[in-house]
Design a protein around this nucleic acid. Sequence first.
DNA 1: GTAATACTGAACCACATGGTTCACTATTCG
DNA 2: CGAATAGTGAACCATGTGGTTCAGTATTAC
Lengths: 112, 112
Amino acid sequence: MVHYSTSLDSSFAALADPVRRDVLVRLARRDASISDLAGAFEMTLTGMKKHVQVLEDAGLVTTEKVGRVRWCRLGPRRLEKENEWIAKYQSMLEARYDRLGEFLERTRGEHP
Amino acid sequence: MVHYSTSLDSSFAALADPVRRDVLVRLARRDASISDLAGAFEMTLTGMKKHVQVLEDAGLVTTEKVGRVRWCRLGPRRLEKENEWIAKYQSMLEARYDRLGEFLERTRGEHP
DNA sequence: GTAATACTGAACCACATGGTTCACTATTCG
DNA sequence: CGAATAGTGAACCATGTGGTTCAGTATTAC
């Protein structure tokens, strides 16, 4: 697959999993260790580590190992780009409807 | 994998591919056939059909076969739910920062 | 020092994804 | 009618995903 873009790909992919969305919400409340998260989602440490890795690769989470514990907190990316993409898309939709409305306005009564 | 949610999973997954995001943008301008899209992205009909199928399953596109041509147009889902999820998440982040600021405010000068 | 804890990495599994080709059907054009 | 066009479905392929287990290492607690 040709990769035209980088960031939106990985962040939208990260958001496509319910576990990862919930991990984000949980981390928005408070930082957590891999064990904390694995326990909360009844998953193995290894399994949760992979999810955290995906989130980290997308810039949504950062981690830091302190002693034997890896602490996870929210990363630098706060979904601004994703928000922008969706907003731009929705404004394109509106623009299209506006043009349609304008067209209907212009042609009103032309074909009685 | 346990499926807690349905719609956000499929729509975010649909958005995770640059070809599909561009297909949405293109369809926002004008409706198109599978051939149109396949040509625009230099891809086989079969390949593009699969992308369109993913978008259709996510409710982002609808298609209708007219004669031998399958027309694709934007579907009923306009990313409102996805927008809402991101907005909610971002407001949680703000709330957390507010609590942090409040805490700093409250404890100002307590430990000189 | 021994034991428990926290994580890590490799290996494995079933299934999904993003593509392709090829053979086929249905529709339209001349 | 015959040829070109538009799409479809199955099969295939390499790679990714969402998990697991198991065997480690490093850290901390007793």
